[in-house]
């Protein structure tokens, strides 16, 4: 087990991501045979097919890849940082904060005045949620304080979203908000990719910075501090990384839950179980999972297109059940 992972893990993950990406570009409501799709991607072939592939499916695949990766990485980093296998970005209120920011944009009609306003408000919402979190958690470096403060912030943001739905001036606005809260990668363009990638890359860098600190935290906060970890700075980097990275993702895709929860659990048994070893494999597995879920959304025949967040939520429940059964020693 060199480098903390089983030898075949990375080849398998790369294969899964590639399969996900190829299916994501190849599968859709317009059936385009592989040979013609390949030609279109190389700039030849039918212009309509090229438009579908390059302007619709390619950005969708790229977003699935990047958003899945940051969600998986955030989950792995947070589980390591909080030493809690049930942690994921929504625990800190970042996801709900971002969603509230976006809902505000829709509710006040700001989203229609400028396309960039919704994503910007989503990122701002995530950062405001995390600033509030820091304020509530105070100078304490303890993970428990942070989780409690996160529940409070998350609940507050959730209440704000419900309020917006409750007071919504017309059913269309309410429907738009609901649609957005379900999470989807439908009809995204390259402008969305350009908008999401910078914050996602910055967030990933901030989260990956502290891999060693997460390992040291296996020994608790005192143990980590005695191994040279600056807990206050680690916390700042983790909060900013989650806020910026997940904020950027939610800004484009809407709320997609559970990826950050599921993926580290799938990956962990295939590593030496140290928090640093699951970070990048979780990013790759998150990308593969979201790409495949997004393909499933297109393949499963429904009258309204199935929303991505709904699919991932259904996938999340079994993970909780497995945990529950292990706790009760039924399995």
């Amino acid at each position: 087990m060199r480098g903390g992972t089983k030898g075949w893990l990375w080849p398998a993950l790369i294969a899964a991501v590639l399969i996900g990406a190829v299916l994501s570009i190849g599968v859709g409501s317009a059936a385009i045979p592989p040979a013609r799709a390949f030609a279109a991607l190389l700039g030849r072939g039918d212009p309509v097919e090229r438009a579908i592939l390059v302007e619709l499916r390619l950005p969708r695949a790229m977003l699935g890849l990047a958003i899945g990766a940051i969600l998986g990485l955030s989950g792995a980093a947070l589980q390591g940082y909080l030493r809690n296998p049930l942690a994921e970005p929504s625990v800190l209120g970042a996801s709900n904060g971002a969603a509230l920011g976006a809902v505000v944009a829709i509710y006040f009609g700001l989203a229609s005045s400028s396309a960039a306003l919704l994503p910007l408000l989503a990122i701002a919402g995530a950062l405001v949620a995390l600033a509030l979190l820091s304020l509530l958690a105070g100078r304490s470096e303890s993970a428990l304080t942070l989780i409690l403060a996160g529940v409070a912030v998350s609940t507050l943001a959730g209440a704000g979203i419900s309020l917006a739905l409750n007071l919504s001036p017309n059913p269309f606005a309410a429907m738009e908000i609901t649609n957005w809260l379900l999470g989807s990668l439908e009809d995204r363009a390259f402008s969305h990719v350009l908008l999401a990638l910078p914050p996602i890359a910055l967030g990933a860098a901030l989260l990956a910075w502290d891999a060693r600190a997460f390992d040291a935290l296996t020994l608790g906060e005192d143990g980590a501090a005695a191994l040279g970890v600056d807990l206050a700075r680690t916390r700042l980097r983790v909060l900013l990384g989650i806020g910026i990275g997940v904020g950027g993702a939610v800004a484009v895709s809407g709320a997609i839950g559970f990826v950050g929860l599921i993926v580290p659990h799938l990956v962990r048994p295939l590593t030496d179980r140290s928090p640093s070893a699951i970070l990048w494999p979780s990013a790759a597995a998150g990308a593969a999972l979201l790409l495949l879920a997004d393909v499933a959304v297109r393949v499963i025949p429904t009258t309204n297109e199935l929303k991505l967040g709904v699919v991932t939520a259904f996938l999340g429940v079994p993970v909780f059940l497995v945990f529950l059964m292990r706790e009760r020693r039924l399995w």
Binding site: T218, G220, A225, G228, R273
Partner: peptide, 30 residues
């Protein structure tokens, strides 16, 4: 800086909790 202190003093806390099921070798390597 914490890192400087960490190289000078090793610390074995009382009743050390372990938060992840690491192998012994991996744990000692921390």
């Amino acid at each position: 800086p914490r890192a400087a202190t960490a190289r000078q003093i090793a610390y074995l806390p009382q009743g050390q909790a372990l938060h992840w099921p690491l192998s012994v070798e991996r744990l000692v390597a921390l």
